[in-house]
Simulated assay, not measured.
Amino acid sequence: MSWHTGRLVGFDLETTGVDVEADRIVTACIVGCGDGQPVTPRIWLADPGIDIPAEATAVHGISTEQARANGRPAAEVVEDIVHALAEAVTDGTPIVVMNAPYDLTLLDREARRYGVTPLADLVGDELRVIDPRVMDKAVDPYRPGRRRLTDLCAHYGLRLDAAHTADADALAACRVAWVLAERWPQLRGTALDQLHAVQRQWAAQQAASYAGYLARTPGREHEAATVRPEWPLVPHQSRRTA
């Protein structure tokens, strides 16, 4: 049986911004799907403890006032998310995360911020991640166009309602992963352990290619040094300092 025909757990965050070292979780979803079982979403709304910039609210629809009025304390939310993911990992279920280094690194930093044991420390080498963005770029590298989740859904003929809400995006990532495996034999024919390892190699190659592109682009040369090759998250000890 291929990994994609069993149970999958999708994970997505909506946040206060795009800096994994400084920004905070606003909403999160962990959704179980597949294997002939019902879809089981768990959704969290957090009070991030800081103002939510208008630019972020425009993306996910949650304002500072809404988060303060209805959100749970961020530390509680982070602990819940980490434990829910750890439970899935312990069960042997792959975690599907679109652009995993963003969500998993930000979750790691949030856990450390609030004194919660990070997921990587809880599960160690048992974590198995499926990243549709990495896989799509690996199997179809020369296709033109962007590769955001909305782009992949459009390309593969998948419906995505309420994009940029954590629950919709988490489930959509699982659907993209399933379609990729159905379409590309090298994905569905690779055992989960090996697929996790090869995605790390693909991600590093893709990062090197993008850094090279930036280095050759006038006015963007300085951005090349900010491209990180680590996958599925940037280890805390690798954080760069000014």
Rank of each mutant, 00 (worst) to 15 (best):
A86V: 00
L85T: 03
V89A: 05
L104P: 06
R113V: 12
T105D: 05
L106G: 06
T105H: 03
A111S: 14
L107Y: 02
P101R: 01
T117E: 10
H83G: 05
T93H: 00
E110A: 12
D91V: 01
A88T: 07
V82R: 03
L85Q: 04
Y102D: 02
V96T: 14
D103E: 14
E87W: 11
E110P: 10
P101N: 00
A86C: 01
G115F: 11
H83T: 14
Y114D: 13
R109K: 06
Y114R: 05
P101A: 05
E87D: 15
D103Y: 09
L106M: 15
V96R: 09
H83K: 03
V82E: 06
P101T: 05
V97Q: 14
A111I: 04
A88C: 08
P94I: 04
A88D: 12
D103W: 08
R113S: 13
N99V: 00
T117G: 06
V89N: 05
V116E: 13
V82N: 08
D91F: 05
Y114N: 11
G92F: 07
E110R: 12
E110D: 09
P101K: 04
H83A: 09
V116T: 15
Y102S: 06
T93D: 07
T117S: 10
G92R: 04
M98W: 15
A111G: 12
D108L: 11
R109L: 02
M98P: 08
V97M: 11
V116G: 12
G92T: 06
H83I: 10
I95T: 10
L104Y: 15
V89Q: 01
H83E: 13
D103H: 12
T93I: 15
T93Y: 06
R112E: 13
R109G: 04
E110Q: 15
A88S: 14
M98E: 13
I95E: 11
V96N: 10
Y102I: 09
P94V: 09
A86I: 03
A86F: 01
L85M: 06
A88F: 04
A88N: 07
P94C: 00
P94L: 01
G115N: 10
A88L: 05
T105E: 06
Y102A: 01
T117N: 02
D91T: 08
A88Q: 09
E87R: 13
L85K: 00
D108R: 10
E110W: 00
T93A: 09
A111N: 08
R109I: 02
L106P: 07
I95L: 09
T90Y: 04
Y114I: 11
R109Y: 08
I95F: 07
D103T: 11
D103K: 09
V82M: 00
H83S: 13
A84I: 09
G92M: 02
V82G: 09
V89Y: 02
V116W: 14
A88V: 10
M98N: 15
L107V: 00
T117I: 09
Y114F: 14
R113G: 12
Y114Q: 10
T90L: 00
L107K: 02
A88Y: 07
A84H: 11
Y114T: 12
H83P: 02
R112M: 14
D108H: 10
V89T: 15
L107H: 03
L104C: 14
Y102C: 02
P94W: 02
L107P: 04
V82F: 10
V97G: 14
